[in-house]
Each structure stands twice: as structure tokens, then as C-alpha cells.
Amino acid sequence: MSLRPPGGYLARMSESSGHRFHLNGAELVAEPDGCLWWPARGLLAVADLHLEKGSAGAVRGQLLPPYDSRETLLRLARTVGRLRPRRIVCLGDSFHDLGGASRLGEEERAALHALMAGCHWVWVLGNHDPAPPRGLAGEVVPEWVEGALCFRHEAAACPPRQVAGGEVSGHYHPKITLPGRHGSVRGRCFARAGNRLILPAYGAYAGGLDVFSPPLARLLGRSAEVYVLAGQRVLAVRTDAVRRLAGLDAARALP
């Protein structure tokens, strides 16, 4: 397995098809794979990698396909190869549990080292990985502040308008269901309200929490923007409109 980022001029030139927006004055891009890109700083943020979630299940006898870490790292390597960040901030829950880092397979470990070698790597601690990953380099912090933005694992427990500065977090794995006439389309999404931005989970086995579920709804308030990961693109919609649309769609279901 080669996780070496494809280098060169062409890779750097390729267009990002993400969604561009501003958070507390910083110009950011929500990438289609779920990373957050800050071009001015060369900073790439990624949340909830949940590496080795598969083997965490296997320890308990649930034998999930053991390919989740390599899948997650492959995806990250592609984006890193395209964007060439100077700094990568992992917003916590980077490993599914404390033993995760020591269960990494050889190839996956090499791939992670290769990714880390090219930039300044920051581990923000999360609830699944409250201690630094064993045997891995990188700076370990409870939160990372840079410019007008604060990167943390879990959003502060307050309504979006009380957020001081720009807040970038993970933890909640936001996802949304967009109703369509032929059934609904479900996808991971960024959720943004005011100065608050919550990143989608990046890990291959990381599930999702609906943006309308109470914990997320509390953090996002009545109306939030969501940037939905849809294949090669990102769709930007507002939650209040999706709510209305959901009602509208159910009415269509009447025979």
C-alpha cells in the first residue's frame, strides 16, 4: 500500500470543489471529503478519525472488516497530496480508544508517519483518546488557537451567538437527510451557526448524528447552515429550509 501523496505541480493546481465560506473573518473551504481547509494559513483540520475502530470491535468479538484505518488514511493522503498543508490539526477522537495507536497495522503506521513527516501535526485530545497516542510524534494539546479561530474537540456548551471568536470542533459527527421524491439522501455534513463550525466525522467507520437531534440542535439553534458531502461536491443548504422540505415531501407521499 502506498500512501505517499502524489506530488508535483499538477496536484497543486487541481481545483478544490469544496464550499468556500467565512468564519469569524477567516476564509475557509469545506472540502468534499470532510476536511476543513484554511488556505491563508496552510492549515488542514480533520475531526474524528476514529482510527482502529474496526479492531476495537474485534477485541470484543465483533469482526468488522479490518480495513477502516487504511481507508481513512488513504482518503486523508489524497487530500493532503492535493492541498499540501503546512499544519494538520486532528480535532480529537483520532483513535477510537486508548489502545488504538498500538493496534495500528504496520502499513497503516508507516502511512501515518509519512503523512506526519511533511507538516506540523497537532493532536487535539478527545473523549475517546484523552491521552496522547502511544508511540506517535506530533504536538498534543487540549485545544489549538490560531488567528481568529479556536480548534477544539467538543463545542462549548452554549448557544451559537455566545461563542467567543471562531470555534471549530468535531465530536458530534453531524449528518443530515435531504428528502427527495425517490427517497431520501443522507450524508455527512459540516454544521455551522454564527461563529460555530462543527466538522463531520472523517473516519471510515464513524457513524453520524442527525443535525436535528437534540444535542446538535441545541448547539446550532433554530437555523444553521449545513454543507453536505455529496460525492465530489459539497451542497450548502439551511436547516430550517430542509425541515420545511421534509414536511413537504411527506405530503407528496400521499397516494
Binding site: R181, H182, V237, L248
Partner: peptide, 23 residues
């Protein structure tokens, strides 16, 4: 039933556009 992701993202988009252009 269920053919949601089968190339029907477009459909969802079109619906959104139709229903709420301000989106």
C-alpha cells in the same frame, strides 16, 4: 423504494431549488 443514492442526488437538489430558490 430505496434507490436514494442511485444518481438521485440531482433529484434532491432540483427539489430544493424548486421549493426554495432562496436556499
Amino acid at each position: 423504494y430505496g434507490s436514494a443514492m442511485d444518481a438521485l442526488l440531482e433529484e434532491a437538489e432540483a427539489l430544493i431549488r424548486e421549493a426554495m430558490p432562496e436556499l
